[in-house]
């Protein structure tokens, strides 16, 4: 008897199960109550840590605007996302997504997914404001270029573009900027938004050449399995261009540096 009753109960359970058939995704960032977002702690104009938990910059503002759209009313917490740890932070789900001048590359795409890009930066050249002899990469021939330890930007000029430059070692981009100011180097080259961030800090001392010799597609890193979240972020980015938010933020952080900003939505990478 009991067996039969148990069977009847099973039937009820089965019907309930059939009723709710398709279950939702268990681990998407969409609609979460708290979002943990990785940003750069030390990139002027893009992400700078003011104090614990308080960051500012273009990436930080973009992250906030996106968070407000994909998870309305969520509490947002920012954490450091240093370049070398970005993939592991996402893979271990320590952060929900990363907005940290994070270029989309096919190699990285094998580990994480990218929403966006929210901006296509370009490798460009920063010179002193009074410089008139450098208008494109080839004009660097015979001039001095800062070579930052651990960065590959100089390679693109010297090796990939075959321009014979004089390389001058610098410890960091801040160091290179200081060297540019006091005339030890003629040019600094890396992503234009990074250069613009430094230039904006220094008032009127520098200008960007707008040479644009590579595309750096700044994407929003997200866990590879969260396709729903990735698509929601893409939709948010489109909307943020349509309502003028991102163009306004670009102006806010990089205006006055001579950088030509693009104010239309970039071509997305696709979430799968």
């Amino acid at each position: 008897m009991r067996a039969r009753i148990a069977l009847a109960m099973l039937a009820v359970l089965a019907l309930t199960a059939a009723g709710c058939g398709a279950g939702g995704d268990e681990s998407s960032i969409v609609g979460k109550d708290t979002l943990v977002i990785g940003v750069k702690p030390d990139q002027p104009g893009l992400g700078v840590k003011k104090r614990e938990g308080v960051y500012e910059g273009f990436d930080v503002d973009v992250a906030k605007a996106i968070a407000a759209r994909v998870a309305k009313g969520a509490t947002v917490r920012f954490v450091d996302a240093p370049s070398a740890k970005r993939e592991s932070l996402l893979e271990s789900r320590q952060v929900d997504f990363i907005v940290a001048s994070y270029s989309i590359t096919p190699e990285r795409k094998t580990k994480v997914a990218f929403a966006g890009p929210y901006y296509v930066a370009h490798q460009d050249i920063l010179v002193r404001r009074d410089e008139t002899g450098i208008r494109n990469v080839r004009d660097l021939r015979g001039r001095s270029l800062c070579k930052v330890a651990g960065s590959t930007s100089w390679r693109r000029v010297q090796e990939e573009r075959g321009v014979p430059v004089r390389l001058v070692d610098g410890e960091s981009y801040s160091d290179c900027i200081a060297k540019l100011r006091n005339g030890q180097v003629d040019a600094v080259s890396t992503d234009d938004l990074i250069l613009a961030g430094f230039a904006a800090e220094q008032g009127n001392a520098f200008k960007i050449v707008n040479a644009r010799f590579t595309d750096e597609r700044y994407g929003i890193g997200i866990h590879k399995s969260d396709i729903e979240g990735c698509e929601a972020i893409n939709k948010a980015i489109t909307a943020l261009y349509q309502d003028g938010t991102i163009p306004k933020l670009l102006k806010k952080w990089f205006d006055g540096t001579g950088l030509e900003l693009t104010d239309t939505v970039p071509q997305f990478e696709g979430c799968d």
Partner: peptide, 28 residues
Amino acid sequence: LESGSIVRRTYEEQHAAVQGGRVAVAVV
């Protein structure tokens, strides 16, 4: 890309629903 996500969502919903339905048919 965006309209492609319609197909992904439909697929995920309907595929899960069919799999769930299969279990329900088995149990009932």
